[in-house]
Amino acid sequence: MIWINDTLVSQGDAGVYGERVINGYRVWDPYRSKLAALYALGAGPDLIKSMRVLYLGAAHGTTVSHVADYTDVVYAVEFAPRPIQDLLEVSARRRNVIPIMADASRPQTYAPLIEYVDLIYQDIAQPDQVEIARRNWLFLKDGGIAVLILKTRCVDVKKSPKEVLATATIECEDCGIRVLKSTWLSPYHQDHVALLCTKT
């Protein structure tokens, strides 16, 4: 990962969403991107040039554009028609962003389009996040890394964020997803926790 004076940056074609640029590098703001927050907290998996990434919940493609700066290819899955327009714009300027309009909980609809990946990044505000990860688990190479961002308020409003995390961790272990580490994304994002997982 590239840091300039404690600021996380990535190297690529700038001006995607009006991001700041330092010495030709694009600033990756931890307050805007949950993945950047994870790096700012020192808990993110290193992105390297040979990596193939499956990105579930690509939204407007802002974080996607930074991930694409670091990696070989990003398969960006998004379901909602409005953000897809922005994602298509991003993919038009970035050769290695492949936009897929599909429901991440139904991998059978996009399985023929993608390949084995080294990293799954999942940032979907849905209550059944672990189940969605499990269904996409087949795309991950052995030893591959998965980052699940849990928006705990979206999973169950009745439970405290800590309880939600505990339940999700157990659910992960039950379906063979090994959780290496969990990191709360405060102060950058409230009630969000990142689960760093691996496939063994």
Partner: peptide, 24 residues
């Protein structure tokens, strides 16, 4: 690999545009 990615991308972009159009 570049050629492969370009080809699969063309297909994905076409599908996404089609879906967006039919949604609207």
């Amino acid at each position: 690999r570049e050629e492969y990615l370009d080809k699969v991308k063309a297909v994905c972009v076409f599908m996404a545009r089609q879906n967006v159009a039919s949604y609207y």
